[in-house]
């Protein structure tokens, strides 16, 4: 699992400590953590992988399973990441420390119903492990809508496997997504008619 963590540059030592704790807790949970600070985490994504995605016009953020925004100090990227993640239906954990004085930017969201993929959380330091663990659990179990949650085992022949591999490459997707989106859903739509 890949999680992108955005924190804002600032001079408050206690916030820097909290940022480090967020990263440590996530790493201890076994996830790959990438942050917006160049010297941390990006070595887990190979340079050639990033270049391949870039050349294909893909956004590296789309490859993340979830996004955590620590917004105790807000910068111009906070709103952008939140809006982007909502548009792409990416699970987001939006955090701000209780005594930081920050407020959520979700007040500018022009729909009264906040998407299920967004979790807004005011926190204090002792709460962090539980909050982060809960977020990871939500991603794994697909509690956000639109995520497939039921595991289904299907035995296939080598010929079918080769076909699926070819199609996945053609449509730049996974074999499972190809089956779900291109084959099964289409069949269901046709059947409804």
């Amino acid at each position: 699992m890949r999680i992108f963590v955005h924190t804002t540059y600032n001079h408050r030592d206690y916030l820097k400590r909290l940022y480090a704790k967020i990263v440590d807790v996530l790493k201890d949970s076994g996830v790959m953590v990438i942050t917006n600070h160049d010297h941390e985490g990006k070595e887990d994504l190979t340079k050639s992988e990033i270049e391949r995605m870039s050349d294909a016009g893909e956004n590296v953020l789309d490859k993340m399973d979830g996004i955590i925004i620590e917004a105790s100090v807000q910068d111009s990227e906070v709103g952008y990441l939140l809006a982007y993640a909502i548009a792409q239906k990416k699970p987001i954990l939006y955090l701000y420390e209780k005594h930081s004085g920050a407020k959520s930017v979700m007040g500018y969201f022009t729909n009264s119903k906040i998407p299920d993929s967004v979790k807004i959380q005011v926190y204090e330091e002792p709460d962090l492990p539980a909050i982060l663990s809960d977020f990871l659990h939500r991603i794994e179990t697909g509690e956000s809508k639109d995520l497939p949650t039921i595991k289904f085992t299907l035995r296939i022949t080598p010929q079918i496997e080769r076909f699926l591999k070819l199609k996945a490459k053609q449509y730049r997707t996974t074999k499972a997504d190809y089956l779900r989106d291109k084959v099964i859903k289409k069949y269901m739509e046709g059947d409804e008619k």
Binding site: G79, L82, A83, I86, A87, V105, Y108, F109, T110
Partner: peptide, 10 residues
């Protein structure tokens, strides 16, 4: 615009 409420965040 109602289909894109997230634009207002920016």
């Amino acid at each position: 615009l109602k289909e894109l409420p997230e634009l207002g965040i920016l």
